[in-house]
């Protein structure tokens, strides 16, 4: 008997069992297959019998809901306030690139080079971020966008170093490798972190990773940790190669492991979006691969 026919017979038998027929009565309807179907249906009945209660503890549900909402509230509180111009540019980049180019060129013309040297807390700093965001939305190769992103990450760290030199107290966002020194101090590259005890377990989890950090700089040159996460890269483009262990999207190669979540197996020529993180050797590890039309911004 083919699988298809067996599946059809199983469907019928399950429906009859659910309708209240006994196992013997169901098997008697197709005696020629009774020997094959009996163990299968007995397995189903065994699972049914161990289903347990449909009751969900209200207290557990309430606790879970509270944790979810408290965590959401904490994250909302940590979210950087978006500059209105930044938001405006983001919204319009899919509408017309040329219009945004005009706005950025004009705006940069007005603000001049001062914005390029601006540091967090300076009036022109949001303009600097907006210009960077704009360049990342340009239709360039994924490797170029990745290089730009790296240079902006480096710029963020240099800004923090500049602020430390000024003994500034300001919120900063930067990236780097999280490490723990022998005396137990946490650092992101050369920037020392001030960490509360409740964050230690979290930092242990991220130890050694290339991370994204939100912190408040203190006048003593340390950064009081507010939030941390793995630095993620979203890469979009066309699949050039995929052999199960590595994936090439445009001109960027990513490592694929058994932990990579794959929406649908990518094939050459597909448009894909890949969420990835840095590996220890500076490569990219694919965390999630999805098909679909590539957004205009390849790397965010």
């Amino acid at each position: 008997m083919k699988d298809q026919e067996l599946n059809h017979l199983l469907d019928e038998s399950l429906a009859r069992l659910q309708a209240g027929e006994t196992l013997e009565a169901v098997l008697a309807r197709n005696p020629e297959w009774a020997a094959d179907m009996r163990p299968i249906l007995e397995s189903v009945m065994a699972v049914w019998q161990t289903r347990g209660s449909d009751t969900v503890p209200v207290a557990a549900m309430v606790r879970s809901r509270e944790r979810l909402l408290v965590e959401a509230q904490r994250r909302r509180a940590l979210e950087p306030r978006r500059n209105p111009l930044f938001a405006w540019l983001s919204n319009f980049r899919t509408v017309t690139v040329s219009a945004v180019i005009l706005v950025v060129v004009l705006t940069l013309g007005v603000t001049g080079l001062s914005s390029l040297n601006a540091l967090p807390g300076d009036p022109f700093y949001p303009m600097k971020l907006a210009a960077e965001t704009f360049t990342l939305s340009l239709p360039v190769k994924a490797s170029v966008r990745l290089a730009w992103q790296d240079s902006y990450d480096l710029r963020r760290r240099q800004e923090v170093e500049g602020l430390i030199g000024r003994h500034s107290e300001v919120e900063v966002h930067f990236t780097g490798h999280l490490t723990k020194s022998e005396d137990g101090r946490w650092m992101v590259d050369e920037i020392p972190l001030v960490v509360t005890d409740d964050r230690i377990a979290l930092l242990e989890k991220y130890n050694g990773r290339f991370v994204y950090v939100v912190a408040d700089l203190l006048t003593d040159g340390q950064a009081y940790l507010e939030g941390i996460d793995t630095r993620l890269y979203e890469i979009t483009g066309e699949v050039k190669e995929f052999d199960g262990a590595s994936l090439r999207v445009d001109d960027v190669t990513l490592l694929v492991t058994h932990d990579t979540l794959i929406d649908m197996p990518p094939t050459v020529g597909d448009a894909v979006t890949v969420t990835s993180m840095r590996t220890g050797d500076g490569g990219l590890l694919a965390l999630w691969i999805g098909k679909g039309p590539a957004p205009q911004s390849g790397l965010k």
Partner: peptide, 25 residues
Amino acid sequence: EQLVEDVAGEVFLRLLDALHNRLRP
């Protein structure tokens, strides 16, 4: 029971992660 509550709750915190950080669409 305790593990079930922990895991079920963690599922929704992971959802929050995914929604917020866009780690997994």
